[in-house]
């Protein structure tokens, strides 16, 4: 798909390009903070920045519904539950763990990340991505909903089942460690 605009819109296209670069910078900077931060809560905040940047990229791809869903589900639900978990389970002092294996782990992470980047990146540039003919016009929530209930109905129902199991399972798992409420000598059972 070739995206072209008429020439009297050149100022707006330039502004849009700058905004696009800003969203990419948000995504990558947030991702860097998320994997390098010493404090766990800073990592969660970096993840939030990165997710908002990805939502902006979704908007640039022309799908505002997915962009708003990204903000609602990831930033609104997943990140907030992560913040709760960080506050409930006090994060370990990851910096204090100066074990010998930490350097090995970082080296391994660098190697794996760079290897993936090199292989997949060469594939990105080796292929000439060509557009296919458009069959449906819409990328609106209406079209997505029709697709969910006709072509993808099995996956849709399975996702709802998975979510139900995840809700029940997380309640059961998180409740188990809490004990029965009886105490013996001040120690909770």
């Amino acid at each position: 798909m070739d995206i072209t605009f008429s020439s009297d819109l050149s100022a707006y296209v330039a502004i849009a390009d700058v905004t696009f670069i800003a969203f990419i910078a948000m995504t990558l900077a947030g991702g860097l903070v998320a994997i390098l931060a010493k404090q766990l809560i800073h990592a969660v905040l970096g993840l939030i920045i990165s997710l908002i940047g990805v939502a902006g990229l979704y908007a640039f791809l022309g799908n505002y519904f997915i962009a708003s869903m990204q903000i609602l589900i990831y930033v609104g639900a997943v990140s907030i539950s992560m913040v709760f978990a960080v506050m409930l389970a006090r994060p370990p002092e990851e910096v204090k763990q100066k074990s010998m294996r930490l350097a090995t782990k970082i080296a391994l992470g660098v190697i794996v990340g760079l290897f993936t980047a090199a292989t997949v990146g060469s594939a990105v540039f080796a292929h000439r991505w060509s557009a296919a003919a458009k069959v449906t016009s819409g990328d609106t929530p209406v079209e997505i909903g029709i697709g969910l209930l006709t072509r993808n109905v099995l996956a849709f129902e399975l996702i709802s089942l998975v979510l139900l199991i995840a809700i029940i399972g997380s309640v059961v798992i998180a409740k188990r460690g809490r004990g029965t409420g009886k105490t013996v000598g001040g120690e909770e059972l």
């Binding site: 990558l28 991702g31 994997i35 994060p91 990851e94 930490l102 782990k105 990340g113 993936t116």
Partner: peptide, 16 residues
């Protein structure tokens, strides 16, 4: 791709 590489790095190198 960069997000994937960041994620792989973090998954391997972070202990928590």
């Amino acid at each position: 791709l960069i997000l994937l590489s960041f994620g792989l790095y973090g998954l391997i190198s972070r202990p928590g």
